[in-house]
Design a protein around this nucleic acid. Structure first.
Length: 503
RNA sequence: GGCGCCAUCGUCUAGUCUGGUCUAGGACACAAGCUUUUCAAGCUUGGUACCCGGGUUCGAAUCCCGGUGGCGCUACCA
């Protein structure tokens, strides 16, 4: 794909979130694709904060985004830096930003670049490529309504475009600056993912460049910054595809060469609408809280819209970098399949070294005892889908006696009258047992004893397991007994016998 | 309404550019079986897809045209 990386042009990509809340899972994928592309081509990845909508920016928004990227291990080379503070996960180095994190193209926060946008907007006015517009929002709204009723395309009617561009004109009124879009011809460009595209100029609106509050719109700020920051490839969501001709026209008006574009397919809800909060969590923070591993979430999100190989599902970040290819990114939207995320996360959990897993799961356990935690986690490791499952799954280890419905002590293949005597026999055997109290020794001793008594394995082991765990499903009874120790094991058996007698 | 994008199992996808090896492959989920005190894991097996209609061709999931459907945009939001 010679259109991707020309030897002469350094690959520089950017991820430009708005600090309007938490990082969206779709944004995480966009950030990841940009990151993969940059790393693959030895380029640079820039984080830029687009806070030009003052009403929607929220306090702490920038920090939240940076922390989340940090958690995900997506490092940026240039961009705003946070004051050092105890992070979420110390193991992930933040971008090797230059110095203060400003880089040579900073600042990387748009609200700190207002004079730059103003300068270019005025330049466009001088060149007659843009004009002041004093139309009120009410007039614009009425205009739109009328156009809708007449079934015409909605667009600005150009009332102020005809006026002369003087400061006088705007003297005492609130105004915006609009781009003077050509009325004829077509705007063409080539998208790396979608190929050649063209739009009729007469259908493109005279885009607002500067708002009346002195802030630029996305369109202006984005184009100016991408140019000034020497961005080579704009990789963003497909919701931007329709406005791309406006951006191309803007580059042209400013006399700049546009970068290359790649518009990524959208992430969808199961009903195929654009992924939204209604149908599950979309904030990456929610996934962190629930105990999804960063490796799993990255792997999962990477495969939404892209699949390098036919028969491989699990990729490390290095493999993803290696295999990443914008030309292989899908064109159609992808429904987010959360069940697959669970499977993938479980798979990563199972393959994780135990000590690492224990460290990550400590917040989900009601104990500070690392040795105990290690044993408990080892038992549950292959059962977990996400770390937060551990709290509930292991609760029975940390209570005095677990409570449960007595009926669940009954094994499906044996009569309820046998439960109490079976448990009593087991209790007596265990209280006399003086071998090693670990899972293996207990298992062979108990199984041997069952055989000698010529009983079924199930009629002893099922009630034993329920007595120790209080649950229909749990790890094997020997493992639980080993962790519980002899005293607590016997106590739980005694409690179960009491219940069983009433059955 | 206008403009644009898209279209392979329920879902993520491989295959489409360079038509035959595709009676369409993998994964998740589902079902059955093995193992087993239960669950999980693991292994084995199974069902389900080329949106529709034309055309080009000896041959089309793949190329062309027309429908249909879905989605996105249509703001002084990004």
């Amino acid at each position: 794909m010679q259109m991707i990386a020309k030897a002469t042009e350094k690959v520089r990509v950017r991820f430009p979130p708005s600090p309007t809340g938490f990082l969206h899972i779709g944004s995480l994928r966009t950030a990841l694709y940009n990151y993969l592309f940059a790393r693959k081509h030895g380029g640079e990845f820039i984080l830029r904060i687009e806070d030009t909508d003052r009403a929607r920016s929220v306090p702490g928004g920038v920090e939240s985004i940076i922390r989340t990227l940090e958690w995900a291990g997506i490092e940026y080379d240039e961009g705003p830096q946070l004051a050092p503070s105890p992070g979420l996960r110390p193991s992930s180095p933040l971008g090797r930003g230059e110095g203060e994190g400003k880089g040579e193209h900073g600042p990387y926060v748009q609200s700190e670049r207002l004079d730059i946008y103003k300068k270019y907007a005025e330049q466009l006015i001088k060149k007659s490529k843009a004009y002041y517009c004093t139309c009120t929002p009410q007039r614009l709204e009425e205009l739109r309504q009328a156009q809708m009723e007449r079934k015409e395309p909605t667009r600005y009617d150009g009332q102020c475009r005809k006026l002369s561009n003087s400061k006088l004109q705007i003297a005492n009124s609130s105004y915006v600056i609009r781009l003077k879009v050509p009325r004829t011809g077509k705007t063409k460009f080539e998208d790396i993912i979608h190929g050649k595209l063209e739009f009729e100029n007469k259908l493109i609106d005279d885009q607002v460049l500067m708002k009346s509050d002195g802030y630029p719109t996305y369109h202006l700020a984005n184009v100016v910054d991408d140019h000034l920051m020497k961005i080579s490839h704009v990789i963003r969501g497909e919701e931007w595809l329709s406005s791309n001709p406006k951006h191309i026209l803007l580059y042209k008006a400013l006399g700049w060469k546009p970068p290359q574009f790649a518009h990524l397919p959208l992430l969808l809800n199961s009903d195929h609408s654009k992924l939204s909060k209604r149908q599950g969590d979309v904030a990456v923070e929610d996934y962190i809280k629930k105990g999804y591993l960063r490796e799993a979430l990255i792997n999962f999100v990477a495969l939404l819209g892209f699949n390098p190989r036919a028969d491989k599902e699990l990729y490390t970040i290095d493999e993803l970098i290696d295999e990443f290819d914008l030309a292989k990114v899908n064109k159609s939207g992808a429904v987010v399949n959360f069940e697959k995320l669970d499977w993938m996360n479980g798979s990563y959990i199972r393959h994780m070294p135990l000590d690492e897993l224990v460290t990550l799961t400590m917040p989900f356990l009601p104990t500070d005892d690392m040795k105990l935690a290690r044993k408990v986690v080892a038992l549950e490791q292959e059962r977990l889908k996400k770390l937060s499952d551990l709290s509930e799954a292991t609760e029975f280890f940390f209570v005095e006696i677990p409570h449960y419905e007595p009926e669940i002590l009954i094994w499906k293949k044996s009569p309820k009258e046998s439960v109490a005597p079976n448990l009593q026999a087991l209790h007596d055997f265990l209280s006399d047992y003086d071998g090693t109290w670990d899972a293996n020794a207990l298992e062979s001793a108990i199984k041997l004893w069952i055989e000698q008594k010529s009983r079924g394995v199930g009629e002893i082991l099922w009630p034993m397991r329920v007595a120790l765990s209080g649950r229909l499903a749990s790890p094997p009874p020997f493992d639980i007994a080993a962790i519980l120790g002899k005293t607590r094991t016997l106590a739980r058996l005694e409690y179960a016998i009491k219940l069983a007698k009433k059955l």
